[in-house]
Design a protein around this nucleic acid. Sequence first.
DNA 1: GTTGACACAACAACCTTTTTGCAATAATTT
DNA 2: AAATTATTGCAAAAAGGTTGTTGTGTCAAC
Lengths: 160, 160
Amino acid sequence: MDEKTEIFVAEKLRLMKERCRIHKLSLTAQRRAILENLASRKDHPTADQIYGAIQGRVNGLSRTTVYRVLETFVQLGLASKICSPEAKSRFEADTKRHHHAVCNHCEAVVDIYSDSLDNIDIPVDGTCFDIHDFSVSFTGLCSNCRDTVKRVHISDKGEA
Amino acid sequence: MDEKTEIFVAEKLRLMKERCRIHKLSLTAQRRAILENLASRKDHPTADQIYGAIQGRVNGLSRTTVYRVLETFVQLGLASKICSPEAKSRFEADTKRHHHAVCNHCEAVVDIYSDSLDNIDIPVDGTCFDIHDFSVSFTGLCSNCRDTVKRVHISDKGEA
DNA sequence: GTTGACACAACAACCTTTTTGCAATAATTT
DNA sequence: AAATTATTGCAAAAAGGTTGTTGTGTCAAC
């Protein structure tokens, strides 16, 4: 783990303690371990992946707890669920506005940071949505898959 | 069903026949029924919701078939899976570029059409992604939920 | 039309992901 | 340190999605 990540994790843990105090939530070893794991990785893990990574290290940690704690973190604003077309939830500790590229073939997710994307115009149309945030999802092929995969169909953008 | 929708469904069916012919796929009653249902609704249904809607009308239609046919439609460019933070796949028949607003509370999804969003700058950064398409996901509260739900946390954008 | 090759759907069974109720346990408050 | 309260772990099951086999439907050549 590089220094930058260590600082990020430490700051996250500090924030967690603060949020837990405010909301009268206990500071448990499980919450600490789950947040620490999520914050220190650069991928966008599912609940199960986090469970797999730390189940040995925390005394008898259960899958149920991981699911529950991650949901709590999202409520507390300590983590986000990312938008993807997959049939499972992926999480990340970076709650600052940013964007993603998702590989259509291997489902890899890469973070994209861009000032111009952060400042797109939020439409004020007739949907009456109270918009809190947004994120741009790019889809395509990652560098690993782009060469090996032959595209199945030609893009239809512009048609009916 | 209004006239606009009827035209859209008819055009989709025509396109399906064309694509099926090209790819040597059979024109089955099930595929027709599933496409017809998907194209005629304005929500963003899951495979199970489509199954529930048409299982009585098509002779002994199975859930499995709905899952498989929807996947085929995505391959053929006749439908899209939408990006959402939910742990299930949602589909839509509109494959033209557009965007979505997702309610954090009830998970409702609303389409957003906007020229300026369609033409944002695609970042050409170091991720080496071969980008095919993109979509902006707005998150917040829909008009139904905005009044009834008290927000649990204050947005953290701009913090660590 | 009939026929035949091939693709497709139904069914059941199974896997994966996520949720729930409840007793036991750990964290905070006093 | 005891009381109070929140939280976890376990088992069970609900959602959501996938796979193999066998019989049926589709489509194109005659």
